[in-house]
Design a protein around this nucleic acid. Structure first.
Length: 263
DNA sequence: AATCGTCTCAACCGCCCTTTA
DNA sequence: ATAAAGGGCGGTTGAGACGAT
């Protein structure tokens, strides 16, 4: 709670403060945010300065309403990544995670609900007469193995872990080194809800790889193929999905140790 | 014109990971 | 190995804008 310090200003930024911050960052560069206020002569906490710069003052920030293309991309990415706003924002030039998060919460989630789609799972909302099975419908997440290589050139990398795991880097913090691998032709998709561990075998890989490159190319393939991945049962290269449904507990039960590897 | 309810989004909060000493 | 600092993340809040009554 750095902003609660005595003498530290809070609330909306004034144009004068913006100018001080922007010119200072342009001159000195980003970083060292905690000491920036004193160096720049601002009565703000470092976090507030960083946020203001990242979400508002950066020259690369794009202004104006979200275009239909951007909206479509957000929807696709959210379907693949869940509430990983920084990752989503990273694929949409000029947009910030905060902006996308707000847009999602105020527009897109409601739009999906109106269309009868669960904004969390991107699956059809259950009918009002909820059965136990319907209410237990699990969330869909793609969770990228942190240190696991892709098993083959046309990979379907996915990973079982609870979404409560750390997602700040886009990988699960619970499962370093652990990777779920498809078994035979079995895939998980929206029409094939497995039990945790069904049709899957955990595999551990003990060599590292270029995470950025792998992740980037993998994400590109996800975006490009996302329609098929999700909706087309005949898709050959569809992405495997892992169903969350309290998966952390279930998977942990079946494969103890796997999910603690990163901690 | 006044009041109320809803919506929007900038800003803050609290947590946790990474880096540094 | 450990603690502290720095930084980044998603979730939440609240003030202002806006529309309905």
């Amino acid at each position: 709670m750095c902003c609660s310090k005595v003498g530290v200003k809070r609330g909306p930024w004034t144009p004068e403060e913006d100018e001080v911050l922007a010119s200072f960052v342009r001159r000195e560069g980003e970083g060292r945010w905690r000491t920036l206020p004193s160096r720049a002569g601002l009565r703000r906490c470092g976090k507030s300065c960083r946020l203001r710069w990242m979400n508002y003052l950066r020259p690369s920030i794009k202004r104006g309403p979200i275009s239909p293309d951007e909206e479509d991309l957000i929807l696709r990415l959210h379907r693949l990544l869940g509430n990983r706003w920084s990752l989503i924002a990273g694929r949409i030039p000029g947009r910030t995670d905060n902006e996308i998060k707000n847009y999602w919460n105020t527009h897109l989630s409601k739009k999906l609900i109106r269309q009868g789609i669960d904004p969390r799972t991107h699956k059809p909302l259950p009918l009002p007469t909820t059965s136990a099975a319907a209410t237990a419908a699990p969330a869909v997440h793609v969770i990228f193995p942190r240190q696991a290589p892709l098993p083959n050139p046309n990979p379907s990398p996915y990973h079982a872990a609870g979404s409560s795991g750390d997602i700040r880097t886009g990988f699960s913090a619970h499962d370093d080194g652990g990777c779920w691998k498809e078994s035979g032709d079995q895939f998980m998709d929206a029409n094939n809800v497995p039990e945790a561990g069904d049709h899957l075998e955990p595999e551990l890989y003990d060599f590292s790889f270029d995470e950025d490159n792998i992740f980037s190319s993998f994400l590109d393939s996800l975006i490009n193929n996302s329609e098929n991945d999700i909706n087309d049962d005949n898709s050959d290269d569809r992405v495997g999905f892992v169903w969350e449904k309290d998966l952390q507990d279930d998977a942990h039960e079946q494969f103890p140790g796997d999910h603690d590897a990163g901690n």
